[in-house]
Structures are given as structure tokens and as C-alpha cells.
């Protein structure tokens, strides 16, 4: 398993004259389990989009293993190992779960241009597809159209597609959004089965999930990094509690 370090230096992004991300220096190391939290509108999703290449920064750089990838587009970054799930579900609605995952597997393994041998006869890729589906617990609906799945299971399918691309770095933008709290442990279980070398950045409002998953937490407020540290340090930080006061229903206090 290859590993990689993702880093930003002096990253800025503004929409028109409105600064959304200001001077962010950030490092995600191989095997790290980091969560990115912050109040609504803090710029978390914008930050992820800058990491994946969906957006270009106004200034600053994005580095992968010390190589500057600021100018690379999304598809190129994916091939270099930066995988992500979308906050708003983006699937192939009229295709089955199996087809959804196979598309990603076949692109990743370079067989998607094959014209004549049936997809189903590509045994290794089909097996990998089924293995991924099993891993996210969707085997029972493998032949169901993605659009017919309940929202929570669509989120799991998103994760399966992201994993199919063999990411070295996985960016999960609210993977548990829409999943009933009682079932968010499913997401946690999946995250627990990820290879140890993959670096994972989790963005979520579910503090229970965040505190059980993360070894490191980055708090973003108004586009800047506000605090970083272990879950224990973050939970004990009075300034973070203050920022989250209006948001106490997320259970920061309970989680500590």
C-alpha cells in the first residue's frame, strides 16, 4: 500500500470579495485519522473542494508528497490517490449498486475501455466490486437501482465508490449526514476496516462519530484553523466550547 502526505501552504479562497478560506496551513499524514469540525459556514466543504481540485485557490498551494498539485484537475488528483465522498449525494441513479461500484473499479484498474469481453467476465474486478459492496453492507441490494435506496444507504454506496478508486487519502464530507444516529456506527465500522495506511479526513456534525473516530481534530472557524489537537485536548479547550455554545445540541460536552 502506497502512502501519501497531503499538505496546504498559505491557502486562500475568496468568492468575489468574500474571503472563505484564509491562510490555511494544514497537514494530513499517512495513516492519520483526522476530523475537521466547525460551525456551519466555517468553510469546511470549500476547503475539501480545494483539496480535491473542484475549486482552485485564490492563492496558496496544495502539495501531495511535496509535489505541487495546485493546478491539477479533479480527475488527475483522483488518479494520484485523493478520494472523496460528496456532501450532496452524486451517484448513477438509474444504475444498480453493483454497476455503480463496478464503474469506479473498472476505471481505477484501467479496464473500462474494454470493448468486447463482458463486464461480468472480468472476474477479478467483479470480485473486488462485490467485496466492496459487502464491506459497506449493501450486498442485499446489489442489483437494486441506486435511486431506490434510502438516503442513508446511498451514502454508504458513495463510500464504496470512493474506496473503489484505491485512495491513499480519503476525504469524507459528512458521510453520515442523513443516516439515522442509531446507524451511524455502520459508518464507523466501515472506517475501522480501512487499511491503516490510508489517511482519512472526516467532516461531520455528529460529534459522537467524530470523537469516536478521530485521533486528531482540526477546528475551523470563519475560514481559518482555530484549534488542533487530540480529541481530549479539543474537548477540554474552553475557546472551542465557546465557539460551539450555540451548537451544544451536537453534544460536544457529552462526548468529552
Amino acid at each position: 500500500m502506497e502512502t501519501a502526505t497531503l499538505e496546504t501552504r498559505g491557502l486562500n479562497k475568496s468568492f468575489g470579495s468574500v474571503p472563505v478560506i484564509t491562510d490555511v496551513d494544514f497537514v494530513l499524514r499517512p495513516g492519520e485519522r483526522r476530523a475537521l469540525i466547525g460551525p456551519n459556514g466555517a468553510g469546511k466543504t470549500t476547503f475539501v473542494n480545494l483539496l480535491t481540485g473542484n475549486l482552485r485557490p485564490t492563492s496558496g498551494r496544495v502539495l501531495l508528497d511535496d509535489h505541487d498539485i495546485t493546478e491539477l484537475d479533479e480527475a488527475r488528483r483522483i488518479r494520484q490517490g485523493i478520494g472523496r465522498t460528496f456532501q450532496i449525494t452524486s451517484l448513477f441513479p438509474m444504475l444498480t449498486v453493483r454497476e455503480n461500484v463496478f464503474l469506479a473499479v473498472s476505471e481505477c484498474e484501467g479496464i473500462a475501455g474494454n470493448l468486447f469481453r463482458s463486464a461480468l467476465r472480468h472476474r477479478p474486478q467483479i470480485e473486488r466490486t462485490d467485496e466492496l459492496i459487502r464491506r459497506v453492507g449493501l450486498s442485499d441490494v446489489a442489483n437494486t437501482h441506486a435511486q431506490l435506496l434510502p438516503y442513508g444507504r446511498q451514502r454508504l454506496l458513495e463510500i464504496a465508490i470512493a474506496l473503489a478508486l484505491r485512495p491513499k487519502i480519503l476525504l469524507l464530507d459528512e458521510p453520515a449526514a442523513g443516516i439515522p444516529t442509531a446507524d451511524s456506527h455502520v459508518v464507523l465500522d466501515i472506517l475501522a476496516t480501512l487499511p491503516k495506511d490510508i489517511a482519512v479526513l472526516l467532516i461531520d456534525h455528529d460529534m459522537d462519530l467524530v470523537f469516536r473516530f478521530a485521533q486528531q481534530i482540526t477546528v475551523m472557524v470563519q475560514g481559518s484553523i482555530f484549534a488542533q489537537g487530540s480529541p481530549r485536548e479539543i474537548a477540554a479547550d474552553p475557546r472551542v466550547r465557546e465557539v460551539y455554545l450555540g451548537d451544544s445540541k451536537h453534544g460536544l460536552a457529552a462526548a468529552s
Partner: peptide
């Protein structure tokens, strides 16, 4: 029925997502 054929349907369904998986 080939992987190519499947990828065509992927492009039809959601070409932005297909680009995002490296197609």
C-alpha cells in the same frame, strides 16, 4: 455488456461523476 458499454451508461447518467472517477 462490456465495461466500455457500462461506462457509457455511467456517462449518460452522471457525466460529472464519471469525470470525478477518472473517466
Amino acid at each position: 455488456a462490456s465495461p466500455f458499454g457500462w461506462s457509457l451508461r455511467g456517462i449518460r447518467e452522471n457525466s460529472a461523476r464519471m469525470a470525478a472517477i477518472g473517466c
